[in-house]
Design a protein around this nucleic acid. Structure first.
Lengths: 114, 114
DNA sequence: TGTTTATATGCTCAGATGAAAATATCAATA
DNA sequence: TATTGATATTTTCATCTGAGCATATAAACA
């Protein structure tokens, strides 16, 4: 669970790759169509697609001489689930973080616990 | 909105940094305490902390000669929200992706629609 | 039919460039 | 002195390009 997320997070770190994922969320595209929309060579785009594929974020469907790149939502979900762990800090469910912080800071000079 | 996510995604790409965030979700820690738990030097941990701070994922609260590193959930949320766009593909809300893919592949040799 | 020839599409490799990760060492601060 | 920050340096990794090669389709010719 944790290991699978690494490939996804690595893939998501690059803005070009995130833009590719956005495009693929609208329609499945060949590498030629994709590379036309980015200011870089096909080879560079291909490397991004490889990293996305290694991360499990897209799959390739071969059709004749065309290779159609398709979004693989499950791969993105693995990163989503990792981040989701922190949603306890957003909705006020466990929003005492700030208090704890400030309490620590002020009481730290008084006493040292544990 | 999109620009802010870059710093967060960059920070989340490294497993050490994600582990640090996990530790900070339990308690606020100084760099000394953190670096004791990782097989690298304090300087290396410090750089990770800097990147986390640049990405807005943690904040530093100075307390005497100690600097307490605190989780900043809002920073993580920016990445979360970007990924959340794709949740339409998980819950079956718009889960026709697979169909479209396969239909494309097979009907591509027959006809070209839109 | 069958076989070239051309074109479109895409992959892979070697290499240049720059960024990131980690270390060792020195400086700053309470 | 103890804790932390900052800098210079090395090593590793990421990104991108250019050139060359491979394959599928389509057209041209026997």
């Amino acid at each position: 669970m944790n290991g699978a997320a690494q490939g996804a997070f690595r893939a998501l770190a690059d803005p070009t790759r995130r833009a590719i994922l956005m495009k693929l969320s609208h329609e499945n595209l060949s590498i030629g169509t994709i590379s036309d929309q980015f200011p870089m060579t096909r080879a560079a785009v291909k490397k991004h697609l490889n990293i996305l594929e290694e991360g499990g974020l897209l799959s390739v469907h071969i059709n004749g001489r065309e290779r159609i790149n398709c979004l693989r939502p499950e791969g993105i979900k693995s990163a989503f689930e990792w981040i989701q762990y922190f949603d306890r800090f957003w909705d006020g469910k466990l929003g005492k973080l700030q208090e704890v912080v400030e309490k620590e800071e002020k009481s730290n000079s008084k006493e040292k616990e544990k």
